[in-house]
C-alpha cells in the first residue's frame, strides 16, 4: 500500500519506523530487491547453458580475453543458478514474474468479497457499468456505446488517460457478467464477475476474475503498472469500496479531516 492512501499530503510518518515501514511496504518491490529472483525461468536455463559454454571456451583460450569471457560465463552461470541478475537489479528490471505469467495467461487476478445484499441487487449495480468508476479506483469513466458495448477511460501511470472499448460477452441475470476488450485495444483485457448466494442468508459472494495480456517483457511491465503496482491489492481495495458503498451508502474516509 502506498502511503498516499493514508497520507495524501505526505506528512511525516513518525513513531516506530520499523513497524510502519513493514506495514506500508509489505512486500519489498520484487524489481528492486537486491537478493531476490529477478530472472525468468527460460532466461535462467539459457543463462546456465550459455554461461557454461562461455566459461569453458574462455578457459580453453588461456588468454586475457579468454579469462574475461570465462568471467562473463561465470556470471551468467551464477545468474542462471540463483535467478538473480545484478545488472537487472541495478536497472530495476525483473523478468521473472512476467516470464512466468507470459508463459501462462498474462496478469491474472481472482478475488472475492461477501456483501450483505442479495445477488440480484449486486448484479443490478454492477450491470450498470457506469457505476464501476464509483468503486474502481483506476477508472475515470465507463460509458455505454451500445446494448453490449462500452467505452472505458482509466488513469495512466503518468497521469495520462488511456481508453479502450469493451463488450459484454456473458450476461446471466443475477448470476454472472463477463466482458472483454474489443479487438485492436491498446490494453487487451477480460473480466468476469459471479454473484453467488452466500450460505446462511449472509448476502452475496462476489467472485471477480480479471485478466490482462501485456505485450510482454519490460513494456508489458509498464502496461501492468496502469493497473497499479499490485493488481491483486488494487482489486481487493476496489471490491471493499463496492461492499461499503452498497452496505452503508458511502465510502468511509479521512481525506479532508482536521489535523495538526
Amino acid at each position: 500500500m502506498s502511503d498516499t492512501l493514508i497520507n495524501p499530503e505526505k506528512r511525516q510518518l513518525a513513531g516506530t519506523a520499523e513497524h510502519s515501514t513493514r506495514i506500508e511496504t509489505p512486500k519489498p518491490a520484487a524489481s528492486g530487491e537486491s537478493r531476490g529472483t529477478n530472472v525468468g525461468n527460460m532466461e535462467r536455463l539459457l543463462s546456465v547453458a550459455s554461461g557454461s559454454t562461455l566459461a569453458l571456451y574462455g578457459l580453453s583460450r588461456r588468454s586475457v580475453g579468454g579469462i574475461a569471457l570465462a568471467a562473463i560465463g561465470g556470471a551468467l552461470l551464477h545468474r542462471g543458478a540463483t535467478g538473480h541478475c545484478s545488472v537487472y537489479s541495478s536497472l530495476k528490471v525483473n523478468t521473472a514474474d512476467h516470464a512466468n505469467s507470459a508463459e501462462t495467461s498474462g496478469i491474472h487476478v481472482e478475488k472475492a468479497i461477501t456483501i450483505g445484499k442479495s445477488p440480484g441487487e449486486v448484479y443490478k449495480f454492477w450491470h450498470n457499468l457506469t457505476n464501476l468508476p464509483r468503486f474502481m479506483d483506476h477508472l475515470i469513466a465507463v460509458t455505454a456505446t451500445g446494448p453490449k458495448t462500452s467505452h472505458w477511460v482509466a488513469k495512466g501511470p503518468t497521469g495520462k488517460e488511456v481508453s479502450w472499448d469493451a463488450e459484454i460477452i456473458v450476461d446471466e441475470p443475477n448470476s454472472r457478467i463477463a466482458w472483454r476488450s474489443m479487438e485492436g485495444s491498446d490494453i487487451e483485457n477480460a473480466g468476469s464477475v459471479r454473484f453467488v448466494q452466500a450460505p446462511g442468508g449472509r448476502g452475496c459472494e462476489v467472485h471477480v476474475t480479471l485478466q490482462y495480456y501485456p505485450p510482454g517483457g519490460v513494456i508489458g511491465a509498464t502496461i501492468a503498472k496502469l493497473f497499479g503496482e499490485e493488481p491483486s491489492q488494487q482489486i481487493t481495495d476496489d471490491l471493499r469500496r463496492l461492499k461499503r458503498l452498497l452496505e452503508t451508502g458511502e465510502i468511509p474516509t479521512i481525506d479532508g479531516q482536521s489535523h495538526g
Partner: peptide, 12 residues
Amino acid sequence: NAFIPTLMEGDI
C-alpha cells in the same frame, strides 16, 4: 509512548 505503530505527526 509510541507503542502503537502508524501514528502520524499532527494526529488528533
